[in-house]
């Protein structure tokens, strides 16, 4: 029992060491990102790191880019009844508020909401998300020790030892930061082409929004981008902020697919896109 405990403790410490590498490197990268305009530092780090040059990324694990699913365009059923309103049908307009008298020849057109999104048609089948090269661990309801053990083993495989065995480079902190900055700029310039600027909104408003984006290796969106604080943005009493959120979402979708280097896929698979077109004016 004691030896088992000692073995587990030893394994635990090893794993903690590995995990600390996972924690440390990304933090280093993000903190150095601010210094991306000083490439000299990054270059000087190169020779002192014992990191091999990156090999060309092996062919994607998935056999083929997933074929576009047949776009389903169901014929509208002719005999379809009126769609069920998402919100209750407003009462017959209390609209003759202005009786049509001679002195009031122009009754005001009063707005009244019509039912929201009609769900008359079945939604087109969502394309299956592309399989990721390194599948994320599935969430389990309970604590499955066997599964966790296997994850421990896998994490060992994917750590430094694996790099040494396979020769596959993991970017050093310096080169990773430089690449991160480059990737970030590549994405930024592509998205900026599709963003409608808020530069014509009043200047004293905070109109920055953040969009979470998940991409496939071929640069397509792997699922619909989401606004961080979606309710706050799209439900904002400030119409300019609401529109800025819509414009950011529309731009991220509109500009896809993105042209990005496949060998760095892991670095741009997940994006946190901060759109503030007033910041640049």
């Amino acid at each position: 029992m004691r030896s088992l405990f000692a073995a587990l403790l030893s394994a635990g410490l090893h794993i903690a060491l590995v995990a600390s590498a996972f924690i440390y490197f990304p933090r280093t990268m993000s903190s150095l990102e601010q210094t991306r305009i000083v490439p000299v530092e990054l270059v000087s780090l190169g020779p002192t790191t014992n990191v091999r040059a990156a090999r060309p990324e092996p062919e994607p694990v998935e056999p083929e880019p997933e074929p576009e699913p047949e776009q389903e365009t169901p014929e509208p059923e002719p005999a379809e009844p009126e769609p069920e309103p998402a919100q209750p049908e407003p009462e017959p307009e209390p609209i003759a508020p202005e009786p049509e008298t001679e002195s009031e020849p122009e009754p005001e057109p009063e707005p009244e909401p019509i039912p929201d999104e009609p769900d008359a048609e079945p939604e087109p089948v969502e394309p299956e998300p592309e399989p990721e090269p390194e599948p994320e661990p599935q969430r389990q309801q309970g604590l499955d020790l066997d599964r966790l053990s296997s994850l421990v083993d896998r994490s060992r495989e994917t750590s430094a030892s694996r790099n040494a065995e396979t020769g596959e480079a993991r970017s050093a902190a310096g080169s990773g930061t430089a690449m991160t900055a480059t990737l970030s700029d590549m994405m930024s310039s592509q998205i900026a082409r599709c963003v409608r600027s808020s530069a014509d909104a009043p200047s004293d408003m905070e109109l920055g929004v953040q969009v979470s984006v998940r991409l496939n290796r071929d640069g397509t969106l792997s699922d619909a981008p989401r606004l961080t604080n979606e309710a706050r943005v799209l439900g904002s009493p400030n119409p300019y902020l609401r529109v800025a959120g819509q414009r950011a979402l529309r731009a991220v979708i509109d500009c896809a697919p993105y042209r990005m280097p496949a060998e760095n896929y892991q670095q741009w698979r997940l994006l946190e896109v901060n759109v503030d077109t007033q910041a640049g004016r």
């Binding site: 993000s30 990102e33 991160t180 990737l183 970030s184 994405m187 930024s188 998205i191 900026a192 963003v195 409608r196 600027s197 808020s198 530069a199 979470s212 984006v213 414009r247 950011a248 731009a251 670095q267 741009w268 997940l270 994006l271 946190e272 896109v273 901060n274 759109v275 503030d276 077109t277 910041a279 640049g280």
Partner: peptide, 9 residues
């Protein structure tokens, strides 16, 4: 996630 700042449109 990779942080991307878009400041122009």
């Amino acid at each position: 996630p990779l942080r991307v700042d878009v400041t122009s449109g």
